[in-house]
Amino acid sequence: MEFFLSALIWLVNPENYVPGSQSPLPISDRLIEHVLYTAICVLISAVIALPLGFYIGHTGRGRQFVISLTGGARAMPTLGLLMALSVFFGYFLSFTVTGFAAAFTALTILAIPSTLAGAYAGIESVDRTTVDAARASGMSEMQILAKVEIPLAMPLIIGGIRASVLQVIATAVVASYIGLGGIGRIISSGIGFNDNDRILGGALLVTILALVVDGMLALVQRFVSPRALRTPIFTPRAVRRETSDTRAASAGRRAVAEASADEGK
């Protein structure tokens, strides 16, 4: 237990936050790097994966592709992908940028499947009758997507992004071994110097970061869920009885879709 205490004290010690300290300090810089790398990679992957997922979810074309991709991605050892890219990029990039380029590419690639699956599963989970009615009302395909499917799919879309973010935060720790900054630096230097404070402090910091970010995204997920679909605060009892069947059915669909959106680490 004293190890944890000591590591926590190390984590909050202002001396470890002094700008210009020797790497891997200051802690704040590593933390900011970690968040920044994660944000950039998730953003790039979302730009690629969301439109693709919307297209597949809306048209139903390429479902098999998503299913195979997410299944295959789970089998891919992240450490192997990182190292392979780092050696591969080393063939034609200078030493200084190789690590960065390889790490960014790997993290972006790893973030794609969950986001894609979330977007696709979200759109697909929208009741087809609703979409049919929207089309019959005279909505164009883009309007159906923007005004009906995406709003209703929002919780699952965010769920996919949430899984991607966790994946990237976790893998970015490992990426410090090919020269990426971030909290992984603190842990690897701790292992190198056999410094318990750094090993544990770094590990706890990443864990806290992951939990906090995940919690925030969970809140976002709840917030973006269309108001009508959240657990109703007031529903007349008679109505509740009458609609409980359909709600159970849609909850089932949602669970299926959710299951296909969450991903490996």
């Binding site: 009741d127 609703t130 049919d132 009615a133 019959a136 005279g138 209703l152 108001r227 679909l229």
Partner: peptide
């Protein structure tokens, strides 16, 4: 799309937008 906006359509399951 224009045509459908000129024609009313009612389905069995109502097909209302739940949100």
């Amino acid at each position: 799309v224009r045509l459908r906006r000129r024609i009313g359509y009612v389905l069995q399951a109502a097909g209302l937008l739940p949100h």
